[in-house]
Design a protein around this nucleic acid. Sequence first.
DNA 1: TTCACACTTCGATCCAGAACGAAGCATTTG
DNA 2: CAAATGCTTCGTTCTGGATCGAAGTGTGAA
Lengths: 225, 225
Amino acid sequence: MKEGPDIARIAALIGDPARANMLTALMSGKALTATELAAEAGVTPQTASVHLGKMTEVHILQKRKQGRHRYYAIRDENVADVIAGLMGLAEKVGLTRTRTGPRDAALRTARSCYNHLAGDMGVRLFDALYERGYLSRSGEDLRLTDAGHDFFADFGIDFSALDQKTSPMCRECLDWSARRSHLSGNLGRAILDRLIELNWAARDTNSRAIIFTKRGKAAFIDTFG
Amino acid sequence: MKEGPDIARIAALIGDPARANMLTALMSGKALTATELAAEAGVTPQTASVHLGKMTEVHILQKRKQGRHRYYAIRDENVADVIAGLMGLAEKVGLTRTRTGPRDAALRTARSCYNHLAGDMGVRLFDALYERGYLSRSGEDLRLTDAGHDFFADFGIDFSALDQKTSPMCRECLDWSARRSHLSGNLGRAILDRLIELNWAARDTNSRAIIFTKRGKAAFIDTFG
DNA sequence: TTCACACTTCGATCCAGAACGAAGCATTTG
DNA sequence: CAAATGCTTCGTTCTGGATCGAAGTGTGAA
């Protein structure tokens, strides 16, 4: 009827329960995969896919392809602000969602991400390596420095095998439990393998959790912390 | 699925085209009647009534009864901020509504509101009276001071008739074209009647517009300006 | 290569909720 | 008082869009 921006389209998108659940999950700042978001929303992956497509289309979300996963995240500060504002309004009126049981904390501390270490431990590792100058960034690429090469050779990584592979040695991987990055790529995989080989940690059979032994955790912190 | 405020309910309300149109109309800061909002939204009064009820229920809107009208306004700054934010998002993606022709400017300058003067002229009148000390506010009530009484007696208002009425002499009325108040009540009505009696102004036959003559406008400004 | 997994697209179903006609209530006007 | 106006409530219709099963695409693992 009048001129002006069309609020309805955007608000209607946020207004669907499934999508709203996804958005609140993403408000943590983490990037989540389509399947994870489907679980958060309580719908099947097909349905989630449609929702995510629509939200990406109007630039509410940002899509990031990584291997066979699609990571979705809140597009920018402006979107986050609006959602936060809506939360404020809802809160004031006493509109709250039903809560479920607490999430598995083990997954947040350490878990496998494809084949490498993720979670708090993974992020901590990444930060330490970067700080010590074992990793260096040039643009989008992540590189293992000579010092880093020596360090990991000492740690027991077999570079003779790794160097032959065509896939990248180091890659940055978005971590969903922390909002930071952790180390992916061939090196990331090799590190996790070595951690298990050393009996510092083991894969949980039922989940993606990585269980550190007491000795293993101490050694990990001693080595990388 | 998770705990936290329920965005969906609020956003879904804003997400309906009819309601979104109403909200954008109200974003001017003006308070509008249910019928006016129905026209803005392009729906019948029944439908508008339901919409307005829902929005009032979750404290997005504020309802104010005035005579046989219901004035609706944006509840508070927080709500306005969220809507403004949504406008920003929509604008950025290029989602705009179709525009219509320009609105009738005459209605904004001067019109009848029930039986008294509204629009820019009405607001100006109200401000001037208040500033000169002819009107005084005590809490919610508006009172005509003794000086005001004398002034309007000079102007030609017949208080002998007005004083007998039980309905309030002075009332504050929300103005939709300006966001300020103008004078309502028996005195408000008497003033408009007197303006017409003096041939300073006349009612438009086709609309609620009040058309001032050149002489009338000059005299009005001279008297009240 | 084959299998498994993550995700998407297609097609069909189904329901919440928007819309309006009709009728009712409240207020003002005449 | 009756008539007109502003608004709301009720009951019904109908459609946009969420949902999921099934099938297709692409990536990684064995």
